[in-house]
Simulated scan of single mutants.
Amino acid sequence: MKNTILAFLAMILAVTVSAQYDPKALETLDAMSKKYKSIPSFEANISYTLTNDVEKISEEFKGKITVKGNKFRLALPEQEVINNGATIWTYLPEAKEVNIDNYDPSSEDVNPSKMHEIYKKGFKYLYLQDKVENGVMCEEIDLVPEKKDAQYFKVKMFINKKEKIIQSFTLFDKGGNRYKYSITKFTPNVKVEDTFFTFDAKKHPDVAVVDLR
């Protein structure tokens, strides 16, 4: 256990020391950001995995995300997160409960609709290599937060080398957890109304509403 902890601390130190404002990484990140800004909306099937080697945790499930501007709707097996840019709803179907809160864009929580802009503030970035990810040639880039007390100590992105869209991204926290989101299907320019990004309590009369605002 001691060797595992030491190795983990060494990994954090190595990543922090090597991270920089890499112009090669910036070129790819800017191209990726430009690509997403040219797409008014998209839908993606995702595969999510949570792993922790020390705690022997390995979980995996699939979901779908729909994004339009700064709005998103993320559907997972046990919950649905809906964000219209101002309000965020977390719907738990099995519990028949929905939590409502104000959305704070300045929070450290990762917003799936803004992943293409995450590098622009508070991060150093480093191009690592070209590497095949899920059968697609990608550019592997690490983002490291400038703040030492950030929620995640690293974000690893694989960006499709040809299409300049995100193939996968992994969040690393200091507890040894790795949260990986892989895009298994990407559909740009989907037609979706703004009302899709709100939770209509009238359509769910049996759901308890917990307003945290």
Rank of each mutant, 00 (worst) to 15 (best):
F158L: 08
D130H: 11
K71Q: 12
E97Y: 02
N45K: 14
C138R: 00
I100G: 06
E59I: 09
V81Y: 04
F42A: 05
I46G: 06
I159V: 15
E139G: 00
I118L: 14
K56S: 14
L76V: 05
F123S: 01
Y48M: 12
Y119H: 12
P145E: 02
V110S: 02
S113N: 03
Y36V: 03
E78M: 10
Y127T: 00
N99C: 03
V98W: 05
V136Q: 02
L92G: 01
R73H: 10
I82P: 04
F72R: 03
G135N: 07
Y36I: 06
T87S: 08
L74R: 10
I46C: 06
A44Q: 08
K124F: 09
A31H: 06
D130E: 14
E140F: 10
P112V: 11
N83K: 12
G122S: 08
P145G: 07
S33I: 01
T51I: 13
K162T: 14
K34C: 02
E140T: 11
I82R: 07
Y127C: 02
S107A: 12
E146D: 10
K147S: 12
K71D: 01
L143R: 03
S106E: 15
K121H: 10
T90A: 11
S107Y: 05
A150E: 03
N52A: 08
K56D: 15
T87H: 04
K35M: 10
L128W: 06
M32E: 04
Y91C: 05
E133N: 11
E59A: 07
N52L: 09
E140D: 10
T90C: 09
P105R: 03
K62C: 00
G85L: 07
A150Y: 03
V81L: 13
L126S: 11
P112E: 09
N83V: 08
D104Q: 11
N160V: 03
Y91Q: 07
D101N: 15
L126Y: 05
D104H: 06
A86T: 14
V136G: 04
N102F: 11
F153T: 04
G69H: 06
Q151R: 13
S58E: 13
I100S: 07
G85A: 07
N84C: 08
E133L: 02
Q129R: 15
N160C: 01
T49Y: 00
E78A: 10
